[in-house]
Simulated scan of single mutants.
Amino acid sequence: MNKVMSNKLMIAIYVLPALLLIGVLIFIPLALTGYYGLMDWDGIGEMTFIGLDNYVNAIQDSLFWDSAWHSFLLAFFSTLSLAIYLVISLILASKIKGADFLRKIYLVPMLLSSVAIAQLWIKIYNPSNGMLNSILRGFGIDNPPAWLAEPDIVLYAIFIPILWQYAGFYILIYYAALKNIPNSLIEAAKIDGANAIQIAYKIKVPLIMGVIKVTIVLAIVGSLKYFDLIYVMTGGGPNGASEVMASYMYKLAFTSNDFGYGSAIGFLLLIITLIVTVIVRKLTADKEEIQY
């Protein structure tokens, strides 16, 4: 094995298939997206080179920046929701009764497709006979809102099913990290008189801070490119109130048949996501990591 690993030709042969796959599925499409953004093209006919016009128009497009703002709002809310997931994970990891059952329940949304989840929540938010408004009427609210039809609240209404959809994913990550903490540290803290909150805040959370930082990056990046559930539930409406960058790109390319402009929006989405990722990684970087 050592002889094989010291042979650069053999290493290249083993790595080459993975590099080819990554190139075909990731780097080549990205390069083509940037290239198509330089064209005036409907996706079918002849392409006309127009230089950076699409990118300049995108930067000056107020609808694009509105969609970008909505994406950043989702990223902000997704990051805040990590605190909820962490608290639930801390409770589940504290050996409460039924923890195994609850952990399986939280994983159920991960087994459903985004389309199924969207259809479920459309029924829940139905202004006439939806479960949510029926409950509100039962509490005496005569005119509950039309959750997906009011521009001021639609984005917040959509965030709830997104939070529900990914709860199991992040809870599972935090739970696994918490269970990896040596029990001797917890017992020593209890002997010293620490209560459950002190143990969670001063011992458990600092020890899994590396995992928390990774989930922050995942939540932000995932929110910036979020598309499917929003598109099914509202299509970006009403009047663009729930439009995000990915759905705006899709409408331009496949609904308006402006494939060149849509590609430019998609490439800008990539650049924005990369910049945000680098900034978040810099902000969450820590020179010293707690070892146990």
Rank of each mutant, 00 (worst) to 15 (best):
I162Q: 10
F227K: 13
E243P: 05
K3R: 12
D53S: 13
I135Y: 13
I117G: 04
Y85F: 06
I197Y: 11
A99L: 10
P238M: 14
Q165V: 03
G235L: 05
A18T: 11
F27G: 06
F101C: 08
A75S: 06
I59E: 07
V276T: 08
T277F: 11
A196R: 13
Y156F: 11
L20P: 14
A253M: 10
A83M: 07
S263R: 01
K204Y: 07
A58W: 07
I220W: 05
A93V: 04
K202I: 06
N7M: 04
L32C: 06
T234F: 03
I265D: 13
L207R: 00
A196M: 09
V278S: 06
I124M: 14
M131I: 13
K204H: 03
L155D: 11
P109I: 01
V154A: 14
N2Y: 08
P145D: 08
S114V: 06
P161G: 05
Y201D: 08
N257W: 15
L269I: 11
I135T: 09
N54W: 01
N7I: 01
L269N: 11
L185P: 05
L270V: 14
I91L: 13
L111H: 00
I96Q: 01
A93W: 02
K204L: 04
I124G: 05
K251N: 15
H70P: 01
